[in-house]
């Protein structure tokens, strides 16, 4: 079970959090202008890689804030956490 450093609350047990999938997928500003393929790209396509992955997490049983996490999915090492809207601190 992870120990997650919520950017707002500090270190908390994983059981307080909920994972929210891949990060940095921006909802298109004008969905109606998109073709089916382009919309499907936004809607369905996720990388799900083995290795360093950028993810969204929600401190659902805490401050209710969403934030981003960089996690190596091969060994579950959390490399960084950062607030929504911020640039990832590592590439």
């Amino acid at each position: 079970m992870f120990l997650i450093n919520c950017p707002f609350c500090g270190e908390r047990e994983q059981s307080e959090f909920k994972a929210g999938g891949e990060a940095h997928i921006v909802r298109p500003k004008q969905p109606t202008e998109l073709s089916d393929d382009e919309w499907a790209e936004y809607l369905f396509m996720r990388k799900n890689i083995k290795g360093v992955q950028f993810e969204r997490w929600n401190h659902v049983h805490g401050c209710r804030k969403w934030f981003n996490m960089v996690r190596d999915t091969s060994n579950d090492q959390i490399k960084a956490v950062y607030k929504m809207g911020e640039k990832p601190p590592i590439k």
Partner: peptide, 10 residues
């Protein structure tokens, strides 16, 4: 949760 998500992230 869903409403918070859109509000905070989008």
């Amino acid at each position: 949760g869903k409403l918070e998500d859109y509000l905070q992230t989008e």
